[in-house]
Write a protein that binds this DNA or RNA. Structure first.
Length: 269
DNA sequence: AGGGCAACCCGGACGC
DNA sequence: TGCGTCCGGGTTGCCC
């Protein structure tokens, strides 16, 4: 659910709120969300300071002054909230990390996780990921070569984390729409111009989504005007039957390799 | 190699 | 209010 732009928005806001803060308490309500015994997990975090928050694909990495890292993946439906004891969502919280009166709540961690890892372990955990779509070193020549080696459909290629990392179900559809290309089109059958358009669409859609704050439904904290600003910007995702904003034809919803996929059958080719 | 699919997991929505 | 049912969805791994 949360994809690159959502996690990047979170990273930026969390950085403002939490960097240099010291963890004062940890509450674990779902042991499967973490990779240690709760007591050990807790003792390795209390009195530890967050020095930096990095992002890799859909993961956040909380760098700690103990030398360890907290690696977060929200997977499906996971989200966070920063608030106080009095101000927090009425939801089940799988993990709560306190920084004095400020608390970071982890909600909806069903398959999501928060793993305490050494640098080497974190590196290993992230080693299978493909390049970051917005990495400046991923220029058109590199992208051209990358996509030329893919025989699958555009949709499955874009969401494949080993190919490119950070793009999920929503943005793969948005990128295909922006590019005017059908999601079931074969990646290696794109001509030069189409590859160029796809490349520019990928950069454009993701950059714009970050600028708007992603498409998250819930704010990160009280008064958060940033998170979720992209909700009204989605042009095909979750717009089944609504008119295409380019040509007016109804947006089609179709299952493509067991993922719900939205596109305009008229102006995407 | 790529497509299809099951398994993972459980809160929350919905129906009665 | 209360209980049962079902869905969602990124990722992994397995099969063809």
């Amino acid at each position: 659910m949360p994809e690159l732009p959502e996690m990047e928005t979170c990273r930026r806001l969390l950085t403002e709120k939490l960097v240099r803060k010291v963890i004062t308490d940890v509450e674990v309500n779902r042991e499967k969300s973490i990779n240690a015994q709760p007591a050990q997990f807790k003792s390795q975090l209390i009195n530890v300071q967050i020095t930096e928050i990095q992002r890799r694909a859909k993961h956040l990495i909380f760098k700690l002054n103990s030398g360890k890292n907290l690696l977060l993946h929200l997977m499906l439906g996971g989200w966070m909230y920063i608030g106080s004891e009095a101000d927090n969502p009425d939801r089940t919280k799988q993990v709560i990390i306190s920084f004095g009166d400020i608390k970071l709540y982890f909600i909806g961690l069903r398959l999501g996780y928060l793993h305490l890892l050494t640098d080497a372990e974190a590196e290993e955990a992230l080693s299978g990921l493909g390049p970051e779509p917005l990495d400046h070193t991923l220029g058109f020549p590199a992208f051209h070569e990358l996509i030329g080696s893919r025989r699958g459909m555009l949709k499955t290629t874009l969401v494949n984390q080993q190919f490119l990392s950070g793009i999920g179900n929503c943005y793969s559809d948005e990128i295909c729409f922006e590019a005017g290309l059908l999601p079931m089109k074969k990646a290696d059958e794109l001509d030069e111009d189409e590859r160029k358009i796809l490349y520019q669409s990928m950069k454009g859609v993701l950059t714009r989504a970050i600028q708007f704050g992603g498409y998250m439904e819930e704010p990160l904290f009280k008064g958060d005007a940033k998170t979720g600003g992209y909700n009204e910007q989605c042009r095909v995702y979750d717009r089944e039957g609504e008119p295409c904003l380019r040509c007016g034809s109804p947006i089609v919803k179709e299952e493509i390799s067991s993922r719900k996929t939205f596109y305009c059958g008229n102006c995407q080719r």
